[in-house]
Nucleic acid binder design. Structure first.
Lengths: 237, 237
DNA sequence: ATCCTATTGTCTCAATTCGTGACAATAATA
DNA sequence: TATTATTGTCACGAATTGAGACAATAGGAT
């Protein structure tokens, strides 16, 4: 049951692909969107190809939109993976065959690809992930419990995390990992999930407030038997 | 007078190039290697193409070796430039024509290119820059006085500088901008040239020593009528 | 109403780091 | 031996950070 046709060789730049590490956050867990190909048990990052006259950044935006329905998300390029042997033809051949596609006709997909990798921080809640033509699922996986990924995709995820971790303040503010308004506790949990460490509540709160990135709003009366926390949003600048 | 033949289309990945921002440091000036093409007044960053079975990183290393003779230099990838309109065919056509090459035969060089950009920090003193087949000079220019660069190369330099500026400590330690042994003053001048600001001597010295990146060696008796400074080197780890 | 409890916002105090100037210790030269 | 420019280190207050204390709730229990 294919949603769209697989891409045609002549419409795209050969040997060039992109992959996206799409982060979402739910409760205490940092998650990533992972696709699974039809009948193959092969898992991969969502990615795609660049059309002949398309800006690279636009191609990635297009890919994100197709998978998540989201527009206007900040995408950050973090590395280009260019080893000659990073493409193993076997998994891709399996994917084609199991989708009823001829490896001869789609031979270009078996060749070497350079991949430009991007990450995005999106709000987990307003996304219904969409599989593409070749895959039958596109689901959230906790970064701590990823399935085995094809090719060098595990490395790509690792590098995305490393990149995200430094200068996290600015990156979280630009991204959309949290809902528009959030409590200090939610913010701290997002930091902790990304950094993989625990932070001291009071120190964290003081630091966040001193960064002048947050705007304070009304309190959130959530029904708990305790003082209600303020809601905050990032100042858009 | 060509040193080597220009590259052949079929040996390379189409539409893919790399560019290198090669930093050197002399006295108080941060410099970059810039090539000038034969009889054209066109200036560009040194770059090249990736062979069909070559790792991207190896291609860039090869390019650096050809231009500088240097091996074993740390190269850091910092961004991939992929706008569809970043390649303006005109300058490239001029370069070909003025080199006696037919734009028809080398048509592939006029097409769209994605470029992966790298920077390197090398020791200005042990380099004799080598022009390539199409260019007649490869020279150092101060970052503050660059000639007008072709295509988006000025943007590439700007982004290289931005990247270099944050987390400079670790980057300088990995690079080779300074000779193996240097004084604290030379180190500070390198920082100042890169950051474009003045730093306080005592604070700088204390901070550098507290980073545990430096090893102290013998003093340098340079002939000045004053206390001789210690020499330092970066601890390789 | 009143008490109880979990959570939150802020304060305090010590430890650490940073900005800034002072100062003593040189290498050469006069 | 005095002079001078430069260097390594210290001193002191200011700013930042780590870690705990504590008061202020918002509901639920009584």
């Amino acid at each position: 049951m294919q949603k769209t046709s697989p891409p045609i060789a002549t419409e795209h730049l050969p040997h060039l692909a992109f992959d996206s590490v799409i982060f979402g956050f739910s409760g205490t867990q940092l998650k990533i969107l992972i696709m699974e190909y039809h009948n193959t048990n092969i898992f991969a990052l969502p990615g795609g190809f660049v059309q002949k006259n398309e800006h690279l950044n636009d191609a990635v935006r297009r890919g994100l939109k197709e998978r998540t329905g989201l527009d206007n998300i900040h995408l950050e390029q973090f590395y280009t993976f260019g080893d000659a042997d990073r493409n193993n033809a076997e998994p891709m051949r399996t994917i084609l065959v199991n989708n009823g596609l001829s490896p001869e006709k789609y031979h270009w997909m078996l060749e070497r690809f350079i991949s430009v990798a991007y990450y995005a921080l999106i709000n987990y809640q307003d996304v219904v992930p969409q599989p593409d033509a070749l895959s039958d699922s596109c689901r959230w996986y906790s970064v701590n419990a990823l399935p085995p990924l094809m090719m060098d995709h595990a490395l790509i995820v690792e590098k995305a995390l490393q990149t995200l971790r430094d200068n996290l303040d600015r990156k979280l503010a630009r991204g959309n990992l949290l809902p528009p308004k959030f409590t200090m506790k939610e913010l701290q949990q997002a930091y902790e999930a990304i950094l993989g460490t625990n932070l001291l509540r009071t120190t964290f709160q003081r630091r966040m407030l001193s960064l002048n990135l947050l705007e304070r709003h009304e309190k959130q009366y959530s029904g708990g038997a305790h003082k209600a926390p303020y809601l905050y949003s990032f100042i858009k600048s």
